[in-house]
Amino acid sequence: MSETHATVTPGAPVFPPGRYGRRRQPGRRRPLLLALVVAVLLAVLGLVAAKLYQQYGDPEYRAEVITYTGITDTRVVVDFRVTVPPGGSATCLLRARSHDGAEVGHVEATVTARPGQRHVTARQEVPTNARPFIGEVLRCRPAG
């Protein structure tokens, strides 16, 4: 005799006994294993992020423009300050821009701190091919 819709509770499938193998019991989860896998994954991602930051991040090389003077049709003089590791060197890219924002000149300057010093103040002339409006330091990186 087969079961009909009237004898089966809705939502619970009925399978003939012994035909499809043993069924798993619902609710058997492993939350501890899942938490352990997530913790290991987060630790590995943290180590990778720290390694990449050490390799590519340069938080110790910061530059700020003190002033720019000596503006003529062919140059601008930029006074700037660079923070480097104690006694370190940096290569900085300086540029001059015209009033409309176009780059009219750029130059790289290498600065070196005295032993034990972290800050270097430097003056660099940036040659231009048109009258500049502003001189600025784009970025500094380790010299070499």
Rank of each mutant, 00 (worst) to 15 (best):
T4N: 14
T4C: 14
T4L: 15
T7E: 14
T7C: 08
T7G: 14
T9K: 15
F15G: 08
F15C: 08
P16A: 15
P16K: 15
P17G: 12
P17F: 13
G18C: 04
R19H: 09
Y20A: 12
G21T: 05
R23W: 02
P26F: 01
P26A: 10
G27M: 03
R28W: 01
R28G: 00
R30W: 03
P31H: 01
P31K: 00
L32R: 08
L33F: 01
A35D: 03
V37Y: 00
A39L: 03
A39T: 05
A39F: 00
V40A: 10
L41K: 00
A43Y: 01
A43V: 05
V44E: 04
G46F: 04
G46R: 07
A49D: 07
Q54S: 14
Q55V: 09
Q55G: 11
G57R: 10
D58W: 15
R62A: 12
A63H: 13
A63Q: 12
V65W: 08
V65Q: 10
I66N: 08
I66V: 15
T67H: 08
Y68K: 00
T69R: 09
T72Y: 00
T72L: 02
T74E: 07
R75H: 03
V77L: 06
V78T: 10
D79W: 02
F80V: 06
F80S: 03
T83K: 13
T83W: 06
T83D: 08
T83V: 14
V84L: 07
V84R: 04
V84C: 05
P86Q: 13
G87Q: 08
G87N: 11
G87P: 13
G87S: 11
S89P: 07
A90W: 07
A90C: 06
C92D: 07
L93I: 14
L94K: 06
R95A: 12
R95G: 09
A96S: 11
A96G: 09
A96Q: 04
H99M: 14
D100N: 13
D100P: 10
G101N: 11
G101Q: 07
A102W: 09
E103F: 06
E103Y: 02
E103P: 04
G105V: 09
A109W: 04
T110V: 14
V111I: 08
T112Y: 08
G116H: 02
R118K: 10
H119M: 10
V120H: 04
T121Y: 05
T121P: 03
T121W: 04
R123P: 01
Q124Y: 00
E125K: 01
E125Q: 09
E125L: 09
P127G: 03
N129W: 08
R131L: 02
I134K: 07
G135N: 05
E136Y: 05
V137H: 07
V137F: 06
R139M: 11
R139T: 13
R141G: 13
A143Y: 01
G144N: 04
G144R: 11
